[in-house]
């Protein structure tokens, strides 16, 4: 698989189809992968593709890397399902020029959440990790443990129905079966079943841990505004300190800003140093949007996000007088 990926990238360079390829390379710590930017064929050897490739690489097409897309450079990008959905979103929102992009799809069987592995082995230091089909082996000083992969998969991968990029130019290997999960939102349903006070309490408790580092926003492919409302100081929407009111304004505001645009990649949750369950509300909103407007973000390159489109005669029972 990795071999095929490297060869494909090499070929793209040789045929001058790309000037730059964004992919994953080996990280400096075990169980990590790091985004790499390749500009010559030989460097394709550095590419990897495995369960550690969790970053959503689509962010590098906007954010600070915005300059890259403005030039006429041809960019190749390796994407799993959710990253691919982000690209669809970017195309719909005119953030990329599709013709300047070579999308290289890889079939995804889920990525791991390093925090879950560390919890599993009670925070011991991992010196090496290896993966087999459905399990992983972690080794450190004086221990060697086997863990079932399903126990350490990122939350976003547990009920994922879109393991392949919806739009791609080349695909490495066989696309995985999509739409095979029937019950996509069991976590949200469980949350909805809690009584109303418990729901508020869980969320406030979770968000009280937030240290407002904004890592969740920074890794989020859907948060690409050049200036985020939390950074503005004239007017200043929220205070600078992690006070709970401001934290809630930040989170609810962000939830609403990515409503109908969140591709549920889970990057926010994996990046959070405070281990907050950030997917819950985002997925709750996605479910709501699916039920109300029959829309899922990042699947159809010709369809506008739910909250950027409308239907004249839709239900407005909530409007009073």
């Amino acid at each position: 698989m990795v071999k095929a990926l490297r060869e494909e990238v090499k070929r793209l360079f040789e045929e001058k189809k790309v000037d730059l390829v964004i992919g994953w390379g080996k990280g400096s710590l075990p169980m990590t992968a790091t985004p790499i930017f390749i500009n010559k064929a030989e460097d394709a050897e550095r590419l990897i593709w495995d369960e550690t490739c969790s970053n959503n690489l689509a962010v590098y097409l906007t954010k600070d890397k915005r300059q890259l897309v403005k030039t006429d450079q041809k960019i190749g990008i390796v994407v799993k399902g959710c990253d691919g959905r982000s690209l669809v979103l970017y195309a719909v929102e005119n953030q990329i020029q599709r013709e300047n992009l070579v999308i290289i799809g890889v079939p995804c069987a889920g990525v791991i959440d390093k925090k879950k592995v560390l919890k599993h082995i009670e925070g011991k230091e991992v010196l090496s990790a290896s993966f087999e089909a459905d399990r992983m082996t972690v080794e450190g000083r004086g221990f060697k443990t086997e863990i079932a992969k399903c126990d350490v998969l990122s939350d976003s991968c547990l009920n994922c129905n879109h393991p392949n990029a919806p739009v791609f130019d080349v695909f490495i290997g066989e696309p995985r079966k999509s739409d095979s999960v029937e019950d996509v939102y069991p976590d949200v349903e469980a949350f909805e079943k809690l009584d109303s006070e418990a729901r508020w309490k869980t969320m406030v408790e979770a968000y009280s841990k937030c240290i407002r580092c904004y890592a969740c926003r920074n890794v989020c492919p859907s948060c690409y505004c050049t200036e985020c409302f939390v950074d503005q100081n004239d007017p200043q929407w929220i205070g600078k300190s992690p006070e709970i009111t401001d934290t809630l304004i930040f989170h609810l505001g962000r939830n609403l800003h990515v409503a109908g645009r969140c591709v549920e990649c889970g990057a926010c949750e994996r990046a959070c140093p405070a281990d907050i369950d950030l997917l819950k509300l985002n997925r709750k909103i996605s479910k709501e949007i699916l039920e109300r407007f029959n829309f899922t973000a990042g699947l159809d390159i010709n369809e506008k996000p739910a909250l950027a489109s409308f239907c004249e005669n839709e239900k407005q029972d909530f409007i009073m007088g």
Binding site: S196, R199, W200, R292
Partner: peptide, 16 residues
């Protein structure tokens, strides 16, 4: 209208 619908449902689910 769409935004408001979603906002209200989120308020509801958080017991606001």
């Amino acid at each position: 209208r769409r935004r408001f619908a979603i906002l209200q449902s989120i308020f509801d689910s958080l017991n606001l």
